[in-house]
């Protein structure tokens, strides 16, 4: 198989996580390249959220390895890093967009502070620069500047999600994990948010792993797709190929179960 020439950003080999005798996820292996968007689909209990937690160092796997290429080009074993270095990675190189904005935002501080806080965490100190950068990012996620000093609790679900994206992208991460980023939103808001994510991720060449059960989201956002069932990857490939010519019985069932509009 001819491989891309560029060096991979993430290498996952034989990843497994068990809860007692229950399989969380098992035998998961893949590579991710800079700028590539990978979708992970499957129904509830398929292991996709467990996989995301293992990949993003929120949970320790029971077997296998997750290697991430640091900015100095060395591959590091994510789970062998000290907790302090893991936290540093999450603050600088990685972003995590949670399904529920309450898990990704601080509701006790203003919208602007939610974004500025990440900048301060990576060492920004000059108030004026931080303010300018925050304003710029709120604009990029299409939020009115007049809402900058409001608390996130006063925002709609779609605005909270856009704020969460700004908070994550402001430090220019190279890898962003997204867990059902649009599933709590009205359909009208979903399309706008998806287009925003697609544009930002594309222009900034951010690699992304998007976990969702929504095949429409996957088609719009991702280049490559993994289909999970019972903790295992049953099929993976180019997103439109997997959706338009699924090979595995389970993927065929998933694709044929979409209700026509």
């Amino acid at each position: 198989m001819s491989m891309p020439r560029e060096e991979s950003l993430l290498e996952v080999r034989d990843l497994g996580k068990y809860f007692g005798r229950t399989v969380g996820c098992e035998s998961v292996s893949f590579d991710l390249w800079p700028g590539e968007v990978l979708g992970v689909v499957g129904e509830s209990g398929s292991g996709k959220s467990t996989l995301l937690k293992c990949l993003s160092a929120q949970t320790a796997p029971d077997r296998g390895i997750v290697r991430y290429r640091l900015r100095d080009e060395d591959l590091c074993d994510v789970h062998a890093l000290s907790e302090a270095r893991q936290r540093m990675l999450m603050r600088t190189d990685w972003g995590i967009v949670h399904q529920n904005p309450r898990d990704g935002l601080r509701f006790g501080i203003s919208a602007g502070a939610n974004v500025g806080e990440r900048l301060i965490a990576v060492g920004a100190r000059h108030y004026g620069n931080i303010r300018t950068e925050v304003t710029d990012w709120l604009q990029r996620v299409e939020m009115e500047q007049s809402r900058m000093d409001d608390l996130p609790g006063t925002f709609s679900g779609g605005m909270q999600q856009r704020l969460q994206i700004a908070r994550n992208l402001v430090t220019q991460p190279r890898l962003v994990f997204m867990d059902e980023p649009t599933s709590g939103l009205d359909v009208s808001v979903q399309a706008r948010l998806l287009d925003l994510i697609r544009t930002l991720v594309g222009t900034l060449r951010i690699a992304c792993i998007v976990v969702t059960h929504d095949l429409g989201v996957v088609r719009l956002l991702t280049h490559r797709l993994m289909v999970m069932r019972g903790g295992r990857v049953v099929e993976q490939g180019l997103t439109d190929q997997v959706l338009d010519d699924p090979q595995h019985p389970y993927t065929q069932l998933l694709v044929s179960s979409i209700l026509p509009v």
Partner: peptide
């Protein structure tokens, strides 16, 4: 000459 039927999906994107 690249064989589309055998390359990695990322190459097809390219």
């Amino acid at each position: 000459l690249v064989d589309i039927a055998a390359v990695h999906p990322q190459m097809i994107v390219e």
